[in-house]
Write a protein that binds this DNA or RNA. Structure first.
Lengths: 146, 146
DNA sequence: TGGGATATCATGGGACCATATGGGCGTCAA
DNA sequence: TTGACGCCCATATGGTCCCATGATATCCCA
């Protein structure tokens, strides 16, 4: 497996740590991702986690803009300034900081959700609800992306 | 790490000093930046800090403009004339001068914000509010620039 | 097919270390 | 002389490492 797929829910311990699922850890080591970069999803209350290559798309766009461009400035503020580094401990756990809790509503448990080139942290019930809502959306409006 | 990323908030002590986050200090030494050049951000109430190479992009743009361009004239006035030099002490702290306080509204705490090739000083609550506003902007209008 | 052995993984907690922070002292300049 | 600044050390808080325990799935063999 070389992509982040499926989901799993783990408990946060008394020290505020949570184990990253083994399957995700093996993808991380396979891609040689040692420093995790995390930032808020632009749409959902979830934290995206992956390597620094996640920034590439944004940085290409920023670099192509005028030095004084407010849009480029705002984007850099979010993706460069709004991200957080996380390191797994030797057991493969990551600390669940307020940065994560505040944006996701996570309290006692974390749902890890695969997103192919990265994975996300969700509050379990929010994940279920959002997934159901998305399914309902497709059911009524169809798959059209417009 | 060779870029300024993420953010951190530190307290100003009784002598008006604040510790630059360890991660940012290591980027500075890695880039062999000893004298910090600081100037006001063009859009936000924040101070930009970095090496003199920060001026490169501005100077390229100024050079490409007409000699009589009011835009280039203004940019030089701000970037060349409006900057100040700062030095870290042996512990990696920098003095928070009135130059910084007046433009940013910083009082008791400083939020250091990574911007890839430089970092910025923000008043914590201003940073949070501005970031939230920028995110909302992208959420409603999309990521398209221009 | 079932039951026990074993490996893998999540969880819990103690010890240690890096870093932010606070404050003392000497030096230099206004 | 006084105040600002640079240099030094002392301390605490939080993060990281290390080892132990418990749970669950997998395998192997009878």
């Amino acid at each position: 497996m070389n992509r982040f797929l499926s989901n799993a829910t783990n408990r946060i311990d008394a020290k505020g740590r949570v184990s990253v699922p083994s399957a995700f850890r093996s993808v991380l080591s396979q891609r040689d991702i040692r420093e995790l970069y995390c930032f808020q999803d632009f749409l959902f209350p979830a934290i995206s986690v992956g390597g620094l290559d996640l920034l590439d798309r944004f940085e290409r766009q920023i670099a192509s803009e005028d030095v004084l461009s407010p849009q480029a400035n705002r984007m850099s503020l979010l993706v460069h300034g709004g991200g957080v580094f996380m390191k797994l401990d030797s057991e493969g756990r990551l600390p669940v900081t307020d940065f994560i809790r505040d944006y996701t509503g996570i309290t006692a448990e974390v749902t890890f959700v695969g997103r192919a080139d990265h994975f996300q942290l969700w509050a379990p019930q929010t994940f279920l609800a959002t997934q159901a809502a998305a399914r309902e959306e497709f059911r009524t409006r169809g798959l059209g992306l417009g």
